[in-house]
Design a protein around this nucleic acid. Sequence first.
DNA 1: CTATATTTTGACCGACCGGTCTAATCTCTT
DNA 2: AAGAGATTAGACCGGTCGGTCAAAATATAG
Lengths: 203, 203
Amino acid sequence: MSKKERELTFTEVARRTQILQATTATINKLGYERTSLSEIAKEAGVAKSAIVYYFGSKETLLMSVLEHAFGALGTNIESAVALVSSPGDKLLAYARNYLDFIDQHRAELAAAVTIVVAHRTEDGKPLYLMENEDDTALLQSILSAGMDEGAFRRMPVSEAAKICEALLDMAITAVQRNLDADLTILKSELVDFIVSGLSPVSQ
Amino acid sequence: MSKKERELTFTEVARRTQILQATTATINKLGYERTSLSEIAKEAGVAKSAIVYYFGSKETLLMSVLEHAFGALGTNIESAVALVSSPGDKLLAYARNYLDFIDQHRAELAAAVTIVVAHRTEDGKPLYLMENEDDTALLQSILSAGMDEGAFRRMPVSEAAKICEALLDMAITAVQRNLDADLTILKSELVDFIVSGLSPVSQ
DNA sequence: CTATATTTTGACCGACCGGTCTAATCTCTT
DNA sequence: AAGAGATTAGACCGGTCGGTCAAAATATAG
């Protein structure tokens, strides 16, 4: 029963989940810089070497937190967008699901964004400066289709997508500031501003 | 001729300027995490202890970089806004000066924002999560006046100001990604989006 | 020139980091 | 029960960090 044969043993899954959750909690409690392997181990109630045993390195652990959080967010949005057909509705579904998901998964996303903002790759670059076009592919296709059929005003699709993402991400920043923040007003105003900013009849 | 009597000796000003510039250069070259006192000293061509001699601590040095960059930005915007009278014109002056200043002081602002995003205070909180309402006081007053006279649509002033700031800050992120980035399109689209998003006749 | 204050340096310190290693323990299979 | 592999804990390592310190170098003043 070696590790190679069985992909995931019971204890392995349990420990990994436990450590991932402890990592999220530690990041939200202490911030990125103070989140050392020792602190995560203390939070999880295991030895520091247990973390390395299950994740190989701190880097891998942090990337696992990212995959967990953003993977769920992406899946959620994709299925929500697929339920409607017009670009206007798709954009609304995208924005509202994005914001609602943040609202409902505060700890995971706050920790994930803390990592994205603070973690550096070997060459010293933070992850948030390395986003590629693929990350906004769905949004870009919605915007592009909407501009073609006149639902949105004409503007460079790449810039429009970045603007929408930047606005939606404001909700995560708000949660980072205060995990219990009331997002009601912000969510509503962000959706309104995006719609208004893309409106073809404005001015 | 003690330091207490004379506020700023000649060599003191020169060394401080030299070290501040070396700090900016090192941050943009190596990123925040690798910017140690040793690296800054190497870049400046002085001993590590000379930095501590002139700035007291790394923390104070980094805060000095911030004051230098954001102080100049704030002054610039304030005088530009004061030149026009209508809220619509003031908002345009605010946005365009903000973006042009970024365009023309890329190194200083990229380094400053890198610090704001990555540096942690004693309690582990990053500076960008500690912005207070005062930072957007001017913008809020412009937006408030514009809503009162119907130049902008009605919406919560605090949220509107945060949204505008977030959009304008996209230009700094672009510069952080690439110090030589062409900001022409982004600047223009950001101004358009802000105007469009605040337009009272949209929908 | 001498003495006094300022500036500069490099060796050094304690703390903490991510990660390794070894030995002990636990959990199965037989 | 026994042996094998999986799991755990804790001591330990090399390296880097921010910062200190005492001495050396440099200027300034009388």
